[in-house]
Amino acid sequence: MRPGTAMLLFALLTLAACQREERDTRPQNSLGSGEQPTPVTTLEPGGQRASASDNKAASFEANAFHLSEGKRLFSWFNCSGCHANGGGGMGPALMDQKWLYGSSIESIHATIRDGRPKGMPSFRDKIPDDQIWELAAFVRSLSGNAPSSAAPQRNDDMMPHPSENRLPDAATLGKSP
């Protein structure tokens, strides 16, 4: 390979890494309102929603900035008051492989926005939509469902569990099924 080509390739590869850090702080209306129909029953076949994936989901799922914002908001909005850093308390654990309402980011977004019947409050109108997506992406990282290259790497205070980027996928515990 000629040195010029090699350098160009290297530059392109470096640029590719920027996506992980992209910081969209304005609401991403162009991607849709995030208004998907919400299933209000507890029963979903396979615990997974059948509806098509939301356009917004992709831009939040593997983005390090949004994941760490989600982590900050999780404590700011006192999710820990009921979910105790993901370990579970009055609300269910969020770091295990069991999902009452589906593990997809869309389902979790719907849970936070509209609440769930057995005590999960609705945060509709109380948290802007993009911030709900950030929280949903972060909740998924608690059970190892976020790329380790993007999940938060540290805590500002004492760690209740290994940092999110080191948590194995709770469903398989890191082993292939």
Partner: peptide, 11 residues
């Protein structure tokens, strides 16, 4: 976010 981009107050 226009006045103070990155600030912890969301739009």
């Amino acid at each position: 976010q226009g006045v103070k981009p990155g600030s912890h107050m969301p739009v």
